[in-house]
Structures are given as C-alpha cells and as structure tokens.
Design a protein around this nucleic acid. Sequence first.
DNA 1: GTGGTCTAGACCACC
DNA 2: GTGGTCTAGACCACG
Lengths: 126, 126, 126, 126
Amino acid sequence: MQLHVNPSDELPIYRQIMRQIIDAVAGGRIAPGEQLPSHRDLAEQLVIAPLTVKKAYDELERQGLIATQRGRGTFVSAQLPAVKPEQRLERLRDPAQRLLSQAALSGVPFEEVLDLLQEIRKGMAQ
Amino acid sequence: MQLHVNPSDELPIYRQIMRQIIDAVAGGRIAPGEQLPSHRDLAEQLVIAPLTVKKAYDELERQGLIATQRGRGTFVSAQLPAVKPEQRLERLRDPAQRLLSQAALSGVPFEEVLDLLQEIRKGMAQ
Amino acid sequence: MQLHVNPSDELPIYRQIMRQIIDAVAGGRIAPGEQLPSHRDLAEQLVIAPLTVKKAYDELERQGLIATQRGRGTFVSAQLPAVKPEQRLERLRDPAQRLLSQAALSGVPFEEVLDLLQEIRKGMAQ
Amino acid sequence: MQLHVNPSDELPIYRQIMRQIIDAVAGGRIAPGEQLPSHRDLAEQLVIAPLTVKKAYDELERQGLIATQRGRGTFVSAQLPAVKPEQRLERLRDPAQRLLSQAALSGVPFEEVLDLLQEIRKGMAQ
DNA sequence: GTGGTCTAGACCACC
DNA sequence: GTGGTCTAGACCACG
C-alpha cells in the first residue's frame, strides 16, 4: 500500500491518511485482518510526526475499521462494522448530492458523471 | 430559500452557508440574477454573527458565483463562472471516489448508487 | 467544578479528567448545555499540557457527552446520548460484577455494599 | 474454569487473566487450596505467550491470592489475603461510584441497580 | 519491537 | 478569545 500526503492541502494530514486507508479497504487493496505498518514506520515513510499517524489510526479504530493490539500492531478489522440497512442509503445521500452539485456547476452532463463512476469503479479491486 | 446551520458541525459555518447556496444554484432553486438576502438579515435569521455570513458571501464572490452591487444588494451571477474543460472532470474525481468508497463500505451495490443518483437528479431540477 | 489530577495514578491523566467530567454530568453538578472551561484554561489550572485536556475532551465528544463549537467553546450536550433499552442493563453488568468481586475479596458483607451505594447516591445531586 | 482473553481489549491481557481469576475466587468458583493450570498449559489454551500468563500469576502471588510451590504447581491460597479494616470500604468507593455514574447516564433507576446486584450475587455463590 | 501517554511549544482557522 | 492541527522529542507498559 502506497500512501502519500500533502501538507499544504486544506484537508488535515491525519484526515488524508484516514481517507486513503478507508479507500484502500473499500477498494479491497487491503484485506480484512491484514496488518498495517506501525504508526512510527508510516510516519517515517511519510516524513511526518508519529503522533499525526497515530491520530489517524485512533480515529479509524473508533470507527471500527481497524483494531490495535498493544505490543503487537494494528490490523484491519476482520469483521468490518455493519451498517444498519436503514442507514445504508442515507449515508450516501450527502456524498451523492455533492457530486451532482459539483457536476452541475462544472457543466458536466449527467451521463458523463455516470461514465466517470464506471471508470473509477474499475480501478477499485472488486 | 431556507438555510440551516449547525455550529457543532465539523464544517465551518461560513462553509456550510457557501455549500447550501452553491447547491441551490446548481439545483436551479435560485435563478441567475436573483437577489440574496443581505448578510445582516441572513445572520439574524440564522442566529449567527454577521461577519460569518459576510465571509461566505465574500468567498462566493471571489469564486464568481455571486456579485455585490454597492448600495443595491447581492445577486447570483447571471453568467455562472466558466470552468476550464480540462478541469471539469478532475473536479469530480474526488467526490466520485468518496461516494463509491462509502458505498462499498456500507455494502450498497453499484446499481443502487446509480438509482440514488437518478432520484436526486430528479429532485434537483424542479 | 473542581477537578484534580494525579500524574502518578495508574489511570492516564486524560482518563482521570474524562471520568470526573462524566461523574459530574451524571451527578448533575454540570447541567446539560453548560460551558466547560477551555482546554487551555483547564490545562493551566491542572498544571498539565493543553493537549492532554484536549484528548479528554475529544474522547468525550466522540461519546456524545459534550460538543465543541469552533471559536466558541466546549459545552455539555443538551441532549445526552440515548442508550438503547436493551443495552441499559448490560452496560451495568460489568461494573456491578467488579463491585461485588471487590467486596467479596475484601470481606465486606452485601448489606454494607448497599449502604455504601445509598451514601454515594446522596452525594450525587438528584 | 473457563478463561477468555481479548487481545484488542484496552485492559492488558495479563490483567484480564488476573481479573478473571480474582472474580472466580471471590465468587467461590475456585476454592482455596485448589490447583491452577500451569502457566504453560493456560497459555496454550488461550493462544498467547507463556510469559504473559506467568506475569499474571506472579502478580497474583505478590498480592497473596495464589502461591506457587516449586515442583508441584500453583494453588489458590488457603487463606485469602487480609484487608485492613480501614481500607475495606475505601476500596469499594471507586467501583461503586463508577456503577452509579454509569447507571445515571444510562437512565437506570437506583432500584434497578439494586435488583441487578441481587441477581448477580445469587449467581456468584453457586 | 509495538502501542500508550505526555510535554512544551508552534501556527492556523474560526467566531 | 476559541478550538484544530502539527512537531519533535520523551518515557512507560506490553508481548
């Protein structure tokens, strides 16, 4: 797994890390149960402070996406947190709304949005 | 147009205002040329500081979405800001990626994501 | 509200702070909606690093007990997080088990445990 | 006696072991004089490192709850460690406080807490 | 080696 | 003023 980070991005560094790990898990590029690099190693690799990586790991753990074991390491949860059926679609409303707003403002027709989604979908491991 | 604001939200208040106005314009609920409430009125209505609304208006003006005419008020630009063709799709990559990741983690199949988009699209135009 | 902290305690400082705030809210000594001291002020008062207080506040916010508003301050949630009925008793099983184990090992008869609870209960604002 | 261990738990594994043995003795499920499994056997059963179990046994021995006899094995002390009278109630204050706070926050009335204690008490003796 | 905590500063964004 | 983020170290506990 290759992470990269942009300190001048508006999004905080620890959020950038979170999002990349979330995307990697969602895309199947990291398997459930797999071990993540120690927060110190990852910090060294990204040339940032260890605490910053740890903050990202801590947040992800609270979301149930990963689990840490003291003295052993950090692992992607074997059982990803279940989303209640009635919440499943609700969670998508906001990101979907954002996508369509941005498309409308940019003058991108609806069909091209669908094409883009298809393209991204192929990039994600099934 | 009815705006809502949540002071506890992670997104800054002025950004919440910006996003709602952007969404309203993109969705056609505010027409180009239409007048917005004065920043003082809107602040009173939302029970927040006038400076906060002004910051949102200033930022939107910088983006070219609205324009203030001294002594007359603030209006949605008759001509929406042009987006360079090569940027059009790039601006959608990020929100599209986020939508698909969230869907994958929530266990929502791709087809239902498309259905959701269709549904939201219908709601926007009216 | 008077907090105190013991750096040599086995329980981490940020946990000590969390527990005292939880107890104060549970005991009614802090009312819902009330503002907490800024994490910097509290840190100065307790003679510890601001980040340590902030970590306590962050955890409590994730639990829904308090809410922060950028630029304004930190407040006890007006609406305390609801506990599902089926979880209410389950959450008490572990602490209750611990209490009785400790009592049995210390040779304190069951009746005296009940007396102690009555006494503590009086100390908590109703 | 059946022990369980959760590596992701906040409580260190050796502490989890300690607590379960303490609870078993306090609840009468292990009688004074009874033999405990060797730390190697227990480690194998729990799929953890033998050193971890040994640490738990060592700590319990330091507290006087168990005693090892070189070449024979580890046994629950016939005589439970004496607790100084003035300490007896003090040791209960903390767990009692925690129980009541949790109850208050969960909306469980005091009477139901007492009922729960009665119920657990019955389960311990058998 | 791992994660867990803590410090003493700094700079920024927000209201 | 407030909270939000980040740094570059340190020490401890755990397995």
